[in-house]
């Protein structure tokens, strides 16, 4: 019967409401109260340093190529000693969708996502971060990795003395 069905539906709804009145509220009183996101949460992007304190970013352009919204731009340059780094590095956070593809593409673990999600600004231009805003003084989630030790070319160490390398061959030697 239709009347019985209607009354049942109303009572079911009321019962759900009454049940939740007695429950503890789930609303977080942000900003007075804040939840701690997991370390793998994807928010503000940083540029980390290797264990020796050098800039990890070699400005290889892979993050800007991977970025689906084209919010990363940079210019590579060579510094004394043959190290490659970014002359300037810019992330436009007003355009960033925090997908994490840049961090995934990074071959040196330089670019990393952090759980710092509070990056609202009153002026949109303040969301355009330059290299000095992005660069931090630590190694982020992987503090030990140093790309140049494994690169296989001598930049931070003499040639042939990196990890997984033999000393340079003597090309004039005749021994087999």
């Amino acid at each position: 019967m239709r009347v019985v069905d209607d009354i049942t539906a109303i009572l079911t709804g009321l019962w759900t409401t009454l049940k939740h009145i007695l429950r503890r509220p789930v609303t977080v009183q942000y900003p007075e109260e804040k939840r701690t996101p997991s370390p793998r949460y994807r928010a503000r992007i940083i540029l980390t340093r290797d264990p020796d304190g050098g800039e990890r970013c070699v400005a290889c352009y892979l993050c800007s190529a991977a970025c689906p919204v084209d919010c990363i731009s940079m210019q590579a340059e060579e510094v004394e000693g043959g190290r490659r780094r970014a002359a300037w590095f810019r992330i436009n956070f007003s355009r960033c969708i925090f997908c994490g593809l840049c961090a995934e593409a990074c071959p040196t673990t330089a670019i990393q996502m952090t759980p710092d999600y509070e990056i609202c600004k009153r002026d949109v231009m303040d969301l355009v971060f330059e290299k000095e805003d992005l660069l931090v003084a630590h190694g982020g989630k992987d503090a030990r990795y140093n790309f140049y030790r494994h690169a296989g070319i001598g930049v931070t160490q003499p040639r042939g003395e990196g990890a997984e390398e033999r000393p340079p061959v003597d090309v004039r030697g005749l021994l087999p």
Partner: peptide
Amino acid sequence: NHPHDCPV
């Protein structure tokens, strides 16, 4: 023997 240095 190829190095691991494509990024640089």
